[in-house]
Design a binder for these strands. Structure first.
Length: 506
RNA sequence: GGAGCGUUGGUCAAGGGGUUAAGACACCUCCCUUUCACGGAGGAAUCACGGGUUCGAUUCCCGUACGCUCUACCA
């Protein structure tokens, strides 16, 4: 039992990594690192027809962005390389044939077309104990016939022969407890395809064994085929060497029911992929959480509590806290509907939580995209602290603070004009004079002199603050006006008041 | 159709044989703020249904309903 903990994430490179995939990685990673184990990335690219260029790189980049780096991977290498199943092709045939010799598997020569017509003719057709004796395989053919077909390189597959007697396979799932299946319910899954590649069913078992995997996390959709894997383990490597299974609950659509899909994101207007993804075949691109303006901390946090809760009221977790508090036993059994509103809330919380220094590179990036030039990082740091609590997504910083770095294009004078008069106009002329002479230009003294002058002019400060804000900011938003003026500095503040006045005059 | 898994407010969820059934998101009202936010207060659940077991069940057991997943030479 003091075996080194080893887990794996085994995606197939067919497109962008979605929420569910990243969460599987997260839970895997958390569990592994809590136990000083090793986390492996294994690429399951056994289906050449579904292989998509760039998908593997995308997975690597996503893991890096989330801070979930594997200890062994195709890129990083490791003692059990290669980590791409297509490069391990030669390994699998041996095991499939071993199974044939043991009578646990058999050769099948039925063509896909033949099986297709069977499926059309017979409702609920399954290649299983009820049909295999009337099909074209080494169970029905004589040894000589089989040998001849094999010698002639006739295309064939190897299928498991699920037991005929009512054998119950049960195993303990880390999340669901004991799960039972009757083996006769499973069909005779293909293990080795005609092209010599293994199917998932053979490949997971073989590779999990060869790579000494101790715990296997995967989505709940795999539960029905688990008995096949357990059966294979039993005859290939022994049940006692089988990893512990953990079938994670699904992430569901926010509306209705069913697995969350890329389509739902498009339909409802939120990302489902971690990062931008462009399908090289269709050129169709999908926005990711990263490009939408999510912080990796928030993304990871949001995923962690989708289907897991530590029993306390805590909702905001850093990676370190997750590493400390995560537990597999507290993962839920039922699926959870994804809520984009909640995801936004997490991002907002993380923007508030992170220091201006940490936020700085993200904000500069977002500004650069809008061609906003920031000359002085120290100013930007101050600005970030001033506006961060009103930003939910990173690009919100542009809206909320671009006026610090460039004068607003237009002023919302409609909000001022109806109540604008000569009296107020004079006040601002006075204010310009006063501010020009000011020796200190901090928010507090600015506010103080502003209010004193207002009192002297028999005006309520409140009536003057909105026009002042519009002149500086352009609209009805942003931090306290005097904080803004202080950051802007004397010259710029005065300049903007003058400009505002000239616009209001017309 | 079959098998497996699941079911606490609109959503995420805590809890667990006896409770006023936590908390968060969203929504609404109010307070704070003469901007927008933040923040604060308040507002919603006969714990899917029906049977048991029990002095007592939302909590344990069995059914039913509903939902989901799988049922490919895809993963």
């Amino acid at each position: 039992m003091d075996k080194k903990i080893r887990t794996r994430f085994a995606p197939s490179p067919t497109g962008g990594l979605h929420l569910g995939g990243v969460r599987t990685v997260l839970f895997n990673y958390l569990f592994t690192k809590q136990n000083n184990g090793e986390f492996i990335l294994r690429i399951e690219d056994t289906d050449q027809t579904r292989f998509v260029e760039g998908a593997e790189e995308y997975i690597n980049e996503t893991l890096a962005w989330c801070g979930l780096q594997p200890d062994e991977s195709p890129v990083k290498g490791g003692p059990y390389a290669p980590y791409r199943q297509s490069e391990r092709k030669e390994i699998y045939r041996k095991y499939a044939e071993e199974l044939v010799e043991k009578g646990i598997a058999y050769y099948a020569f039925d063509t896909p077309e033949e099986l297709d017509t069977k499926r059309k003719e017979i409702p609920n057709f399954k290649y299983d104990l009820s049909t295999r004796n009337s099909l074209n395989n080494s169970l029905t053919l004589s040894d000589d016939e089989v040998k001849e077909l094999l010698d002639k390189n006739t295309p064939h597959v190897i299928r498991v022969k699920m037991p005929e007697e009512n054998e119950t396979v049960s195993f303990v799932d880390l999340i669901r407890g004991e799960v039972h299946f009757n083996t006769s319910e499973s069909d005779d899954k293909v293990l080795l395809k005609a092209d010599g590649m293994p199917t998932y069913h053979l490949a997971v078992v073989v590779d999990d064994y060869l790579m000494k995997i101790t715990q296997a996390f995967r989505g709940e959709e795999w539960l029905p085929s688990a008995p096949v894997h357990v059966y294979l383990w039993k005859h290939l490597f022994g049940i006692e060497n089988m990893p512990q299974w953990a079938h994670l609950p699904l992430i569901l659509k926010p509306d209705g029911n069913g697995k969350l899909s890329k389509r739902d994101g498009e339909r409802l207007g939120f990302p489902v992929f971690a990062m931008n993804w462009t399908d090289p075949r269709t050129n169709e691109s999908t926005q990711g959480f990263r490009e939408r303006g999510f912080l990796p901390e928030a993304f990871v946090n949001m995923l962690a509590v989708l289907g897991w809760n530590d029993g306390t009221e805590q909702e905001i977790y850093s990676m370190d806290e997750l590493l400390e508090k995560f537990s597999v036993e507290k993962i839920h059994k039922g699926g959870a509907k994804f809520s984009y509103d909640k995801a936004l809330w997490f991002n907002h919380e993380w923007i508030k939580k992170l220091s201006a220094e940490k936020l700085l590179p993200y904000i500069k990036n977002v500004f650069a995209e809008k061609n906003i030039v920031v000359k002085d990082d120290a100013v930007l740091l101050k600005v970030i602290d001033l506006v961060k609590e009103r930003c939910t997504l990173l690009p919100d910083f542009v809206e909320q603070s671009s006026f610090f770095f460039q004068s607003p294009d237009t002023l919302d004078i409609a909000s001022v004009l109806p109540k604008w008069n000569e009296h107020k106009n004079n006040f601002f002329i006075e204010l310009i004079r006063s501010y020009e002479l000011a020796t200190a230009f901090d928010a507090e003294t600015l506010e103080h002199s502003f209010k004193e002058m207002a009192a002297a002019s028999q005006l309520k400060p409140g009536e003057l603050m909105l026009p002042f804000r519009i002149m500086l900011v352009g609209g009805k938003f942003g931090p306290h006006v005097f904080d803004i003026a202080a950051v802007l500095g004397k010259e710029e503040t005065v300049k903007r008041i003058k400009r505002g006045l000239s616009i209001l005059e017309n």
